[in-house]
Design a protein around this nucleic acid. Structure first.
Lengths: 105, 105
DNA sequence: TATAGATACTACGACAGACATAGTATGACA
DNA sequence: TGTCATACTATGTCTGTCGTAGTATCTATA
């Protein structure tokens, strides 16, 4: 398991990664992240919800309600600014990787 | 410049990286980190000092005073547990790198 | 010899992101 | 009818990093 201090700052990236394809909602994102990391990282629900509202606040995603599945869900879709933000995060990652690697033996 | 949220959790690693070679003190470590990242990451003094005392508290490093340079300095040397901790951090990094890379396109 | 700048360290408080805990409410299924 | 998975909300805590501000010593230079 991965400690959250090491992942801090990448939660946004994880969320946006999935929203690049299609809108999604918290519970599904949680499952997707767990799966994609093979349970190596499990995002806490509260962390996820607060991250989503932060992203909405920032204008990176927009939420809408949907009940067509029977259950009421709050979906989030990626906005243009969110796409840019994601791409910026990806570039930033390359830089950070290089920097940290200089301290690894 | 790199935001501190992205680096959070790696400050210990950066410090220990240098202490692997020889004892050092805060001000020198600060300079070394700045240099090694080519100014891409500049550790704030307060962050550094608190990290060092945290590491000492945890039994990873030990401090000692030295005045032979003219100026009174608090040096920190790596303890056995600190060496283990550093190596663990390096292994953890490989894992984290893999995990995060799954969310980058 | 004063004075500016680099060095070395300390104290205190603020803040943000992740988390713990606890709860509500609905649908599916046996 | 009751249990489990789903979907979400509220509130407060903790930790690491940073901002600000300060003390004190050494060095260089005018």
């Amino acid at each position: 398991m991965i400690s959250s201090d090491m992942i801090r700052g990448y939660v946004d990236t994880m969320i946006l990664y999935f929203l690049m394809d299609r809108p999604s909602y918290a519970y599904e994102l949680s499952r997707q992240i767990r799966q994609r990391t093979q349970e190596k990282y499990i995002l806490k629900e509260t962390t996820l919800y607060s991250a989503l509202s932060r992203l909405e606040q920032a204008g990176y995603v927009a939420s809408f309600s949907d009940e067509s599945s029977g259950k009421r869900r709050t979906y989030y879709r990626l906005l243009e600014a969110g796409r840019d933000y994601y791409e910026e995060k990806c570039r930033e990652w390359e830089l950070i990787k290089q920097v940290i690697e200089r301290f690894i033996r």
